[in-house]
Design a protein around this nucleic acid. Structure first.
Lengths: 190, 190
DNA sequence: GCATAAATGAAACGACCGTTTCAATAACTG
DNA sequence: CAGTTATTGAAACGGTCGTTTCATTTATGC
């Protein structure tokens, strides 16, 4: 009978907070500057999320979903091309804030495995599932698919760590090429 | 004529702080608990390092040196064996605190490139130099050595990210094997 | 032992933190 | 319009932060 709940409000806040985190990072996050920047107030954030920690966990889940969805849609005729395209997308300037934030969260999550258990598990498994499913659909057995997918994921993340730190595009791009060629020649289905 | 400076004191403090960081991480570091834990006081830390930020930068440099030295001494008859041994050393339980701290610092450094410029540059270049020098000494030209070394470094770091998050040793170890075999078959000198 | 400067202790400063309290407002139902 | 509850604002609370101030202790060369 009274004022009904606004179900879209939390999602709106999540989006705004995510954008703020992309700019300012997670480590030094505090409610007052955040609230001011997104036109809200600490009171409102705590009302909707319960606590700062719960808020962060929620937003991190949203970040993970966003990152996964951004790359799930990439397709190509061959694996070589697909992975090439993924790297091109990952290393594009537009992706860098997301990866910087991702690595920052990664570091914090490794320090607090309990709190960020969901993130730690999902951040590997999401991608492994994505990559391995593709391989499976081509006839590779599930177990080998996961092994091969682990190699792909580790490479992509490792190169991204390098690129974010050095911005040495020429060297890293060359290295990615060399790596992909070596991988593809040892593709377990060939 | 008066009391002379104790040149060993800063190094002692650095060591103690490093041990504390390995346990407690960098993100939430604050002087009072740190000082208490190492039997010192905030006053002393600031006296010797000037500020918290300068202290952190100094200790991070020490961490980097320690990490590099720990792996520089690893040798083997073939590259395959050498990289295998490096991975074995990296993924040993004793190394995990160091890598957790390393990834945490990495995330923070990416957020503050100015402050941690030295770390970001060195954390890639140190290893690249180490790996590439080996390859060069076997006759590979310097440029290709750096490319190949980039592949090795990215792989090692990527697998370590995976392992720290999942502790799925069997899968990651298998993936490392697959990756190394693929790499070695495409070793540019063969 | 005395002068001198390095090193440390104790306490305070102003600022900011996450959170709570209390009250006001807003948006809906009947 | 009245009643009800979701939502928000303003201010305060206790606590911790990095840093500074001021005084004291400590170890050395003369």
């Amino acid at each position: 009978m009274p004022r009904p709940v606004n179900k879209k409000r939390p999602a709106e806040l999540e989006d705004a907070i995510l954008r703020y985190l992309l700019k300012h990072g997670l480590a030094g996050l505090s409610l007052r500057p955040l609230a001011k920047a997104i036109g809200s107030s600490p009171r409102v954030l705590l009302y909707h999320f319960g606590s700062k920690e719960k808020m962060v966990v929620k937003v991190i889940a949203a970040i993970r979903r966003r990152q996964r969805d951004a790359f799930a849609k990439i397709q190509a005729k061959t694996y070589l091309d697909a992975y090439r395209n993924v790297w091109k997308e990952m290393s594009a300037p537009a992706s860098e804030p997301l990866f910087r934030l991702f690595f920052e969260i990664y570091g914090i999550a490794l320090r607090h495995p309990r709190r960020y258990q969901a993130f730690l598990r999902a951040t590997i498994r999401d991608w492994l599932d994505l990559i391995a499913a593709d391989l499976c659909s081509e006839g590779l057995n599930p177990q080998n698919s996961r092994i091969f997918a682990s190699v792909v994921l580790a490479g992509l993340r490792g190169f991204m760590l390098d690129y974010c730190a050095t911005h040495d595009r020429r060297r890293v791009d060359c290295a990615v090429d060399l790596w992909l060629n070596a991988l593809i020649q040892n593709f377990p289905g060939r």
